[in-house]
Amino acid sequence: MPFTVVSLGGPVAPEGEAILRAAGIVSLATDPYPGKAELLPFLTEVQPDALIVRLIERVDAEVMTASPKLKAVAKHGAGTNDIDVAAAARLGIPVLAAVGANAHSVAEHALTLLLALVKDLPAQDAFVRGGGWEKKAYRGHEIRGRTLGIVGLGAIGSVVARLAAAFGMTVIAYDPYIPDAAFDPYAERVSDLNALLARADVVSLHCPLTAETRGMIDGRALGLMKRDALLINTARGEVVDEPALVAALKDGTIAAAGLDVFAPEPPAAANPLWALPNVIVSPHVGGVTEEARRELSVMTCRNVVALLEGREIDGRFLVRPA
């Protein structure tokens, strides 16, 4: 009897579907952000052997136990905060993540948000569309010679470091979990987060969401940053205390922010960030370029097939409880 895989939140890319079909797997998909009222009966009926997690609020024990046949939960991405990894471990269900598959896309997006802020692109676009053509009022800057502080120097942060160095930025980084021997050659190691926040002209977040990092960038942390500093967040919205960020942007504690992630997602229509002129936002799309989506799907589906067929999985793709 063939294995069944359900993608939660929409299908994987065609290249990933082809991998599943070639292995004789039945591939099904839900709509984005399925509610439990519809999801649980569906999973009970189809009895999937694996779940691919794309767009869903949370995969918890109730979702996982809806199918007694479930052998794997695979994140279509690197961050697994939408999966109850501890519950999966208790149930003996491996959790996989596509580590590094979208690193370059997210890194490019972080640099894009940075450049858009430094070059004042949203305001300039609106100015020209409104009939303006006055160059003397422009107050854009170069990023060359500025200091970029990276929080989290994993797969994404390392790419950001290389790209920023190519622009002529000085790169410093904080990551207490990477040994000195593995530290990125483009970045100077800073052992204290507070010191990084105080030194950096731009702070870019690339850390996972954990109990330690939740709310890490709060009012106190923002107060350590330079008044003309920028905050870029393409990690997880919960890493930043949003009300504190709104207050810091309003009172000039920091100059501006570029945000691709929010807490919660999707964010509320009345989110006070929308009213601030010194914020540029995008809807958590840093890692979903066409190229990254293909690579995520291919990596995820290859790992799922390997696990279901009983083959060994590279340890870097296996997620363990914090």
Rank of each mutant, 00 (worst) to 15 (best):
D49E: 12
A275L: 12
P34L: 04
G258C: 08
E291A: 15
L318G: 13
D82Y: 01
I172L: 15
V305K: 13
D192A: 15
G10W: 01
V298E: 13
L115A: 03
T80H: 06
D218A: 11
A181I: 07
S158G: 13
V261A: 13
P272Y: 01
I150G: 12
A270M: 12
E62H: 03
P321V: 06
T210Q: 11
M225Y: 04
Y186F: 14
S67Y: 15
D175S: 06
I254K: 02
V171C: 08
K75E: 15
A256W: 04
E108L: 04
V118G: 03
T210K: 12
L296Q: 10
A182G: 08
V239F: 13
A248R: 00
E142T: 10
V281N: 07
N102C: 15
P208A: 12
L115I: 05
V118C: 08
L28F: 10
D180G: 04
P185G: 02
S191K: 11
N303A: 13
V288H: 12
L230M: 04
L70A: 02
I254V: 10
D251T: 08
A244G: 04
A123Q: 07
L43G: 12
D260M: 10
L20C: 01
A200I: 04
M216R: 10
A161Y: 10
D241G: 14
V159R: 14
G24N: 05
D49C: 10
V5L: 14
S191F: 11
A182M: 08
Y177I: 09
L8V: 00
D314P: 05
V6G: 02
T80E: 07
G77Q: 08
F317H: 14
V203Y: 11
E142C: 04
I217V: 15
H141G: 04
E212A: 15
